[in-house]
Each structure stands twice: as C-alpha cells, then as structure tokens.
Amino acid sequence: MNIVDLITIPLQYPFMVKAIVVSSVVGAVCALLSCFLILKGWSLLGDAISHAVLPGVVLAYIIGIPFSVGGFIFALLAVLLIGSIKTHTKIKEDAVMGIVFTTLFALGLILISRTVSSIDLMHVLFGYVLGISDVAAWYTIGVSAVVAAIILTFRRTLLLFCFDPTHMQSVGVSAKFIHYFLLVLLAVTITASLQTVGIILVIAMLITPGSTAFLLTKRFPVMLVIASVVSVVSSVVGAYASYYLDVSTGGAIVFFQGCVFLGAFAFSVIRSHRKKNTSVVSV
C-alpha cells in the first residue's frame, strides 16, 4: 500500500470526509478562541459552558425548538450567573464556574429523568463525529466561518481586552461590552459544535491548541497561526488514525492534540535549558 492509497482510502467514505472537514473547521475556530481564552485565564469557561447547555437542550426538546437555541440560551445564562456571582462575592472565579456549571448540568439530568423522549438527550452533548448529517455539517461550518471571520476582524480589540481592559476602558471603549462579546462568540461556537463533534472534543479544542502555540511563540499573530494549524492537523491526523486503528475518532483527535502539546512542551523546555546554558557561558 502506498502513501497515496493511505490518504485516499478513508476519503471514499462520505462519513470520513465529513468527520475530517467538520472537525477541522471546528478545530480551527476553537483554536482561534483558545488563544484568547488561555491568555485571559478563561480556559475552564469552555468546559463550564459545554456542560451548562444540557438543561437548555432538554427544554428545547420539550418545547420543540432547535437544540442549539435552547443550548445557547443556557450558555448565556451560565455566563451571566458566573459574572454576577463573581462580582458580588469574593469567591474565586474557578469555584464560581464550578458551582454554576455543575448545578445547571444537574438540572439537565433532573429534567432528562422527568422527560419522556424517544432520543437520548444526554447524548446530544456527546455528538458523534462520524454521524454528522449534511444539514448539521453545513450549519456547524457556517457558524464556525462567521465566528472565525469576526474573531480575525476584531482580533486587535480582543487582544487588548485580554491584555489590558483598564487601558481599553480609559480610551472610552467599553471593556464590559467586549467581555460579553467574547463570551457570546464562545457560546455560539460551543452550541454549534457540541452536536456534531461532541463535548470532549470541544473542551479540548478550546484549551489545547492555544496552549501549545503559547509554548512555541512570543508573537500573538504567530500564535493564532500555530494554534489553528495544530488544531487542524490534529483533526486530520486523528481522524485518519482512528480510521486505521479502528478507534473512537473524537478520542484519537484529542489524544493526538495532547501528544503535540507534549512535544511542544519538551521542545520549549529544551530550548530554555539551552538558552540558560549558553547565557552562562557568554557571561
């Protein structure tokens, strides 16, 4: 078997093509977001929002509206709750996030146990990369493209917000507005991708690529590029590996991402070690 076959064989199957394309697109937009999230110290927020949408999904099912709408409403609710509890108490933000998302997730579990449904609502969160319908694929790709375009257009504003919101406010741009603007982008991305690629993949994609890129560069534009490339490559390699090894596709993608991070970590340790040695010599 030659290398061309190795690449083209999985592509004969539409489900593989969709899995690769959708997880790459979601991976790219999540990677962009992850750069801002890890710099702002909001990494856990992706995790929190992903879980907090559960009651929204169940209620959406009961009322009969699309899952993403219900999920989105609860994502916003979670964000507002976290924000207001944090400003009115001295409890640290990570604890507040933990309280809010577990409570909302639990509400979701309670609602599920009281809802008669012909589908497994819990599994909406565990979207299945290999079972993406065409409609869902286009929806996710469309939303991701819009979010990515917005992030790239306003990247300088978002960066300043992460770096120095006080300065931003002092020149008359509302830091609070940008705060919620970024949160809404995050909520939209999560609700649009949960159903297709699933919760584990979304959480990992919102943290790992940005962290990997952070280890490798000190330039923000480069960081955006590295994060996106790492994320897309992980999606593609992970999907291929899952095909040939016959293992869970989402699992393979996340695992590969983790391996890349580990590689970047080793590289950065070696680099700083070497730098230290040479600087000692030069003195």
């Binding site: 710099l39 960066l159 992460c162 770096f163 120095d164 952070f214 000190k218 330039r219 923000f220 960081m223």
Partner: peptide, 8 residues
Amino acid sequence: VDWDFPVS
C-alpha cells in the same frame, strides 16, 4: 500586567 503575554 501579565508579562508573559505574547506581545512585543
């Protein structure tokens, strides 16, 4: 200030 921030 976050001095590790990737800005020049």
